[in-house]
Structures are given as C-alpha cells and as structure tokens.
Design a protein around this nucleic acid. Structure first.
Lengths: 149, 149
DNA sequence: AATAAAGCGGACATTTTTATCCTCTTGCTT
DNA sequence: AAGCAAGAGGATAAAAATGTCCGCTTTATT
C-alpha cells in the first residue's frame, strides 16, 4: 500500500508525537522532547542509517525540526493534531493521482477510461483517508487500558 | 497505488474483455477472439517482452487461456463479469493486508497500533473496491456516446 | 580550546522491480 | 514433412528502492 520509506516516516513521526505527549519515554527522564536518530531507530525498529535519510527529508519539508551537535536530535515542528498522515506520505513518497489516461488515448482526453477512473477513485479514497487522519489520532497513550500487573 | 505489473495486467485483461465483447477489433475482422501478445502489447502500450511474462502469470493462474503455435494467442478464461480487478491484482502483485503490528510489540499482539490499524483500514477499502469491480464494468464499448463525425 | 555527541551529505552496496533477449517448444498451414 | 507463427522459459540487463558507510560540520560540555 505504502512504501517502506513512507512506513518508516510515519513510525518516526508517530514516535515523536508519542514522546512529546508524554514528556519522557522508556526510562529516559530527560524533560527535553528531542529524540536522537538512534533513539527513534530503536523505538521504531528502522535501520538507523536509512532512517537518518528519511528524517532529513522530513526536516527539509518542515515537518520536524533537527538540532545538530551534542544533545541534538529531532522534534515535531508542529502540534501532532496539525500534522496529517497525508503530509508525511506526500513528503517522502507522494500519492500519485491519475490525471489523464496513461495510454494517452484520444478518446480518453477529457474523461478517464473506466479502468483508470476506478483506479483513481480508489486512490482518491486513500488520499482523503490520509488527509483526515492526524498524527495526534495515532500517537499511543502508553498503558492505556492495560493493567499494571 | 498499484505496481506497473498490476497496471499492465489490468490493461491486458480489459483489452481481452473489450475485444471479446466486440468480436473484432481495430480492423481485424477475424471471428476468433484470440489476441497475440503482440496485439495486446500494441493496444495497451506495454513492452511486448515484459507483457509476455505477465500474460504467462495470468495464464498459470487460470485467468486467461493461452494457445500456442501459429494462430495462437490469449483469451479470457471466464466471462468478464466473473473476473474482478481483485483477481487480477492478487495474481500478479497481491495486496498485503496488515495482520499484525510490524514492530511486533507485545502491547500490539491482539490489536494493531493506531497507525497500522488505519493503514490496514485504508488497504481494506481498496481491497473491497477491487473485489466489487468486475472487468465487465471496465471494458470499453467503442464509440459509446461519441458522434461519428 | 579540546573533546565528544549528533545531524548532514555524498558515495557506495544490495535488493527488488521492470525490461530485454535468445532459444526452445508447440501447433497451424501448405 | 517442412516451414513458419506464436507462446514458454531461462538468462541477462537496466532502473528504482532500500540500505550502509564514512568523512564533515555543528554544538554542547568540560
């Protein structure tokens, strides 16, 4: 459905949102919401070196903020409820709508052939679903509904 | 949204359905509904050598019938209204539903994390859309609604 | 100022997808 | 039976996606 790269980007963003909403994470009692690429990689189980590229892309797009140097890391650039799945996916691996018949048929200039009309309709639904889903709706509240035991 | 291979497979199947419903096609007055790989490649604008592989896959899956030797070619194995987009896509490039959290998190054993629940929900919608769309609904009736000029 | 931590960016490697080519087999036609 | 048209299948190639490595720059800390 979505590429590995988009999957990784979403995991990273959701992780950042989750950490930001908690203040700390996984035993780290630092009040700072900066997460290093290494921390994100561990939490999301994404290869560090590849994740770094994805994070750079997200930073360049203005979805996250990167802080270089010792003590640096990444944090969300906006509130999780102001970032959508669509924003993330479009940044790293854009959804391609079918605007014109790939066959370039004369008869299909102004309206898509049934096949591509259907395929684009499915794409449109996915796109809308992604637009409607904010990262805030996806960030996990730890231990929600689970007994402490 | 779908891979090139799935796109090519759909074009080929829709083409076969269209030809079969017409009896002839593009000046060919043969009563036979067999189409050579070359004919399909030309009509669908897919590279012949690659298309051949895709057609073989569709034939092995029983969606189309191949006839070897001179005068051979391909035809649909079933009526276009008994073949769905889903059948075709699953044959060449299956839609992957997300059955369990890719992170393998303990807390997400029995229910997907919000992210993957959403992604799978989008996948499910697409899957259902493909199941609901028959090839018959996609095969083009030539000159439909177009003046002869 | 020196050191170390951490992101940046370019080059390279691997894997998967897409595409091509060539030979073999099948089966129609003459 | 010979010849030819056409699919089957293996080997190879090219392109794109994914993943790794390493040196450079930035910045906090001592």
């Amino acid at each position: 459905m979505i590429s590995q790269t988009a999957e990784y980007a979403l995991r990273a963003i959701v992780h950042l949102a989750t950490v930001a909403s908690n203040g700390d994470f996984e035993g780290t009692q630092s009040p700072v919401v900066l997460q290093t690429a290494q921390q994100i990689a561990t939490a999301t189980q994404v290869p560090l070196s590849y994740l770094s590229k994805v994070l750079q892309t997200l930073a360049r797009a203005g979805l996250i903020i990167s802080q270089r140097g010792a003590g640096g890391g990444f944090s969300l650039a906006r509130s999780p409820d102001e970032i959508t799945v669509y924003d993330v996916v479009q940044t790293v691996d854009p959804i391609q709508r079918i605007a014109s018949c790939p066959l370039g048929l004369e008869a299909h200039q102004d309206f898509l052939c049934p096949l591509h009309a259907r395929l684009d309709a499915a794409t449109a639904i996915v796109e809308q679903s992604f637009r409607d889903t904010t990262i805030a709706a996806l960030s996990v509240i730890p231990n929600f509904g689970e007994p402490e035991n």
